[in-house]
Design a binder for these strands. Structure first.
Lengths: 347, 347
DNA sequence: ATGAAAGCGCTAACAC
DNA sequence: GTGTTAGCGCTTTCAT
């Protein structure tokens, strides 16, 4: 392991000079800079980021904390955030906390959090989803440079990147209504998730505004997996035979629904329409391709990264970033899973 | 920021003692241990892993280097490796290098590598895929404690976790043959990927062993995306009308194929059978559910993690792990996308 | 069983 | 523009 000191000796300068040519090259004369650069090349020197962190009291790293690595949000968020952070000389550290409060030991959660903070992250990006998760909120409050994607926390709105789930639900209802659907079933997500209750509420309210009531027996619960969508659909088919459309709270469950409908011989969209949520990769892979409410994940990740950078210690840098967009709106991506029903005056 | 020294003062002991009660509690008397534990609780002390790394000359962290974070392998591998590494007090650091040699600047690649090594990772798990990637191989050779998932490198077989892609190709062919198929198209992956060429070779060889030739005009190329599967399938349908089956080099492309066949009104599996590769999540989400060659990703990740741990510096630990399985075999997961053709004596 | 002290590799005043 | 030096927070001999 070559150290700064080795390089310094070889170049015939002090360690400070080597450090300078590495960090602020403009402060060192070009001739000495050349000597140093040479020595670095010869020795194959690589700086030790750990020592650097300790000495400079700044780690130039930002944590990304998710519920589970298999979440469909995780990869795109990780991709965009690392890209941006790298552009600014920052590293990313990832940890997972477990998908639900109950499923995960608080030990796991604490370990994840500790793993991040003990490594001196300057900010952490919380990938939310869990509601009632006191821990998450506590982390958010206790770590003043953390930002959160997915919910808005009172009194700290400027650290929250959020999405209008309520409006997303409305949009889904509006679309189905416009297409003439009146008998609609909903496959919702866990009641633990705030986003899911908001989606449900927006959907219900929009229907209600059009004098349509979403009956309790038209609501089915899933856990965001393909299989749970399949199971819910089985129940839907058993329950009543006059539904013409299904609103699913995510695309995976919608895919399960589609699969189950195929098996039951129900034609999509002619006998049953379906609309998903998230516009994730799977929406384009199923047949018919799924109409879905899109959440601009990448853009939200982008905002979060900028926010995190702004809040970082090392960000004593003169050039601050412009304040990024914090609130994002849904958009409907029409594909081929919703049918225009023949005009019928009333349900 | 409370430091070890603060804790030591409050407890009325030396920093060494605090350090010991943290790392080797059995070496400190229970009464003093209690004092220290108290002080730690009172101050809310969290150890600084960076300083610890520097002082102990071991980072207890292992790098995971992938081509892209959106790879379908990445999440499951990350999930299993972090789980195992955590169990042994290790952290995981992730980086992405870019998906193909051409698509990515060598700067990006070097940055990724540097990000890992400069942070003193004790081992790195390379998630392979790229062939001809000198850089990857160079990293592997230059970093004696690195391990690789996905290919076997001569002279370092004990650091390689690999999968028998050739046999996978054979298995696919054997299955199709057994089901009576003779006119078969193949959607292969990039020729840059060794795994893909092996899959193709195994497939061809098995067909040849049964006196069936896979003509050049029955081979179509994709890039592992759903869309490329769709595009390839368009070509297949245009090319000839007597294919009865398609072998796709991954499930995403197979999903694209299924989608395109649906659009073209080709019944699956009655008019066209299809078999995928990887047995990834999407295989269960499409309709009909996809028969696929499974790659035991989780098990492979497990092996890699154990291997990495064994090669780590800090692993001066007395208790070594048993040598994990290094070579994995394919398995066919039958679902509903391949039809048993009515017995026809000859093609 | 515990303490003193010397670093780990680097940065950042502060001098020159 | 460059060198000297004092740490950053911890671990780890080496004494006691």
């Amino acid at each position: 392991m070559t150290t700064l000191e080795n390089v310094a000796k070889l170049a015939g300068v002090s360690t400070a000079t080597v450090s300078r040519t590495l960090n602020t090259p403009e402060q060192v004369e070009s001739t000495t800079r050349a000597k140093v650069t040479d020595a670095i090349a010869k020795t194959g020197y690589k700086r030790n980021e750990m020592a650097r962190t300790l000495a400079s009291q700044s780690s130039r790293t930002i944590g990304l904390l998710t519920d589970t690595f298999s979440s469909s949000y995780f990869s795109p968020i990780l991709e965009i955030t690392t890209k941006i952070l790298h552009q600014h000389g920052y590293f990313t550290l990832v940890e997972a906390m477990g998908s639900t409060p109950s499923t995960t030991s608080s030990e796991t959660q604490n370990r994840a959090w500790h793993s991040l903070t003990s490594r001196q992250v300057e900010s952490v990006i919380l990938l939310s989803g869990l509601i009632n998760d006191d821990l998450l909120r506590r982390m958010f409050s206790e770590f003043p440079s953390s930002v959160i994607i997915g919910q808005t926390i009172k009194g700290a709105e400027d650290r929250c990147v959020s999405f209008d789930h309520y409006k997303g639900g409305q949009l889904a209802a509006e679309h189905l209504l416009k297409k003439g659907h009146r008998q609609i079933a909903m496959i919702k997500g866990s009641s633990y998730r705030e986003d899911s209750v908001e989606r449900a509420q927006g959907f219900k309210d929009e229907l209600a505004a059009n004098n349509i009531k979403l009956d309790a027996d038209a609501i089915f619960e899933g856990d965001y997996t393909v299989d749970s969508g399949r199971a819910a659909t089985k129940k839907i088919l058993k329950k009543r035979d006059n539904f013409t459309a299904i609103f699913s709270h995510n695309d995976d469950m919608a895919a399960g629904a589609i699969s189950e409908l195929h098996i039951a011989g129900v034609d999509i969209p002619n006998k049953m329409s379906i609309i998903g949520f998230d516009n994730s990769a799977i929406a384009q892979a199923v047949h018919p391709q799924l109409t879905s409410i899109s959440q601009p994940i990448k853009a939200m990740g982008h905002s979060a990264a900028i926010l995190a950078l702004n809040l970082s210690k090392s960000q004593r840098n003169k050039n601050e970033f412009e304040q990024p967009q914090l609130r994002f709106s849904p958009e409907i991506i029409e594909r081929h899973s919703v049918k225009q029903l023949n005009t019928v005056a009333e349900q």
